[in-house]
Structure formats: structure tokens, C-alpha cells
Simulated scan of single mutants.
Amino acid sequence: MTFEDLRIFVAVCQAGSLSAVARDLSCTQSAVSQHVKRLEQATGVRLLERRPRGVVPTPEGRVLQSAAMEGITGLDLALRRLGELARGEAGSVRVTTGATSVRHFMSEAVVAFREQHPGAVLEFRTETSSRSCFDALAEGAVDLAWVTIGPPVRGIEQRPVVELPWVLAVRADDPLARRTRITPADLSGVRHIRFPEDSSSRTHVDTAFARLGVHLTSDTGVADWDTAILLAGLGVGHAVVPALPGQDSAGTSAGPLRFLPLPDLPPLPVGWAARRWEALTPLARSFADLVGQQRGAASGNTDVATVAGE
């Protein structure tokens, strides 16, 4: 059993095809099959089951696939670190998050990180949901993910950084704009600008409103908070969004929008996710800590990086 045997076996499980992996590796299907056979001989169990349209791992194969993925990700990380040391590089930090999160939550931390680590590489990868961010972590494509904190995810550690209260974004000329806060009864008849069904924000809002007995109607959908706020400013509808850093959530803005508190909705916890916090590079931990410190200072809470129930 070799490292290459395990890597190719994982690739076959993910592709569901021996021939597809052979094409990717520019080798024969027989060569790929030999790697799998060596693993089966070493373990004494059948690892793959042939189907009309390819192969799938057996129950025993799924056990080995899970363990192998864990090991391969750790080894890849170690090899990346060793390569950086050998080349004399300062290293890199790879972060995945939503399209607008860097501007709202990380701008000050990016500047501070660049001043502290001028030789480091900081890479951002945009995803459309927390689930996609978790997948990128599991694949080893990124070091950190900025997500909505939710239920435990196997193999992922989540660390909340800040809790965001909810507000209703309305035009200044809307009848609701005269209120200082919004109650569930006030939401009757609003034209709700909804988030995607697979988004954590949508799930959080829908669950909260269901518990309050609020049923919203919607004819407009958006992919992110900023677009919802933009459309609310255009008078297209009303946006239920988190109170973002720098946003006037007291309803006193002199601009075309008012952000009115929704105190009956539980706040939205957001923060970091990683495969294993203790396995992060010092650079990745430094960036994560800087974001936590900046957001903690902004919210008046300096003890925000506590581990979520994992």
C-alpha cells in the first residue's frame, strides 16, 4: 500500500470511473486498476463495486476513502509548508467566503495582515453558500472559510466571531421608515426580497419567521445581502438583512434607506471554519485572529473567538 495507491483510489471514488482517472493521469485503465487491487490485497476486502455506469465504493471502501482523504489533505498541507520553507517563501493563506464578505468583515484585517506579513500571499476564493465553503475545506482547496455558523459539520471546526442582529432595509419614503423598530405584525404585506433556498441566511430567516408565525410573500430573489439592500433602495421591495459593519442600523440614516431593527429575530452568528484549527499554518491563524480582533473591537467584544460546539 503506497501513498499513490491511496490518492488514485480516492480519485476513482470521486470520479466514479476508472477510465476517467486514467485519462486524467494519462495512463491506462489497467494501471489504475492495479493501484486499487494492491489496496484490496493489503486490506483483504473488496473496495469497489462495479455498476452499469462506473464504480462506487463498497461500505469498506467508503471507510478507507474517508480516512485516505483525511490523510492526503494533511500530507498535502505538510508538503506545501515544506515547499515554502525550501523555497524561502513566507507562505500563503487561502480563504473562501461569500462575494461581499471581504469588504464587510475583513478589510481592516487585510491591511493589517499585509503590513505584518509583506511577503505572504493572501488568496480569496468566492463561494455562494456555507455548504460550498465546507466542501472547499474538505477538499483541501483552502485553509479558512468565513461562514454562517450552524450545526456541526463532520471534519470541520467552526469558531464564531460575531453575532449580527437583523434589520429591515426600507426606502426613506416607505411608511415603515417612520418606525424605530419592526415587529412581526409590521411585516404583514411587505414585499420581501428573498435569498437563495440553499443559503444559510435564507434558512435562518425562514426558521425565525416560522416560529413567529410570520408568512412573507416574495417576487424578487437575490444571491447576496448587498444586492438585497440595493434593490430595497430602488423601491423594489423590503430586505431583511444582517446589520453589517459600518451600516447605520439605528434607522437614522439621512440617505435613501433606513435600516430598522428587528429585535424579535435571533442574531446571525458568523465566523471561521477550518478542518483542524491546531493544524493551521501560523500565517492562517494570524489572519483569522486579526479578523476576530477587528470585529471584536467593532462590536465592543474582545473575546469572540470561542470554539463552537465541536
Rank of each mutant, 00 (worst) to 15 (best):
I182T: 00
V36G: 07
F124Y: 14
P282I: 03
M106C: 15
G155D: 03
G251N: 13
A232Q: 04
R81D: 06
L75H: 09
D174N: 09
A185W: 06
S17V: 04
A141G: 03
P118N: 07
R53Q: 14
T220E: 06
G44C: 00
G119C: 05
G255I: 06
R7V: 08
L234H: 14
R202H: 12
R7N: 08
G71E: 15
A68L: 04
T148L: 05
A86E: 10
Q65F: 14
V161E: 01
G16C: 12
L216Q: 05
A172W: 03
V147H: 00
R80Q: 10
V153F: 02
R211W: 09
S132R: 13
E70T: 14
V291L: 13
P152C: 07
A22M: 03
G71D: 11
A138Y: 00
Q247C: 07
R103T: 06
V55C: 11
L216I: 06
L187E: 01
Q247D: 01
T252Y: 10
R7K: 14
L25W: 12
P118S: 08
T306L: 15
A169I: 03
S101W: 07
S101C: 12
R211M: 07
M1E: 07
P256E: 07
T128W: 14
P267V: 02
E49A: 15
S130L: 02
L39F: 06
H192M: 00
S249L: 09
R181N: 05
E89Q: 15
V55F: 10
V147I: 12
A254G: 12
T126M: 11
F124S: 09
V291D: 11
